[in-house]
Amino acid sequence: MLTIRSLLRPSRIVDAHCDIPCGVYDPEQARIEAESCLRIIEKHDASDDKLFRARCIHVKEERAELVKHHLDVLWHDYFKPEHLEKYPDLHDTFWKATKQASKVKQSLDATAAKDLLGMIDTIDEMWKATGGPEKTRVNGRPS
């Protein structure tokens, strides 16, 4: 039976939402992890120690996963619709870069890691051109 009480029971929740965006973004975070991947691959290749090589693979996979995470945060939190107007290939650039990070995670290909650095640099240029260093770093990006 319908009662006033049941009618007044909320049918859904609405969010007065906040994800506490700290507003600090910098592609450098992704780049440092990607540089780690490259160096680890080089160290892996230079070593004959089985255990060390296994550790290299393990740590490199963790770092590559972090690259993906940092790129994702930039993609959906920093970049906004107006940036897409300026860079129509923004989505494609991120899609390719995160795919490249997956490739680095899966392989021991130093060239793939270098290509990933190049893609992050492209994103870095977009971040700089949209005022990222001034807007999203405390006192700007350190030089």
Binding site: R12, V14, C18
Partner: peptide
């Protein structure tokens, strides 16, 4: 017409 419940504090 519907009834909803507020969650979160962004409208405080």
């Amino acid at each position: 017409l519907d009834v909803v419940e507020v969650r979160g504090g962004s409208m405080a």
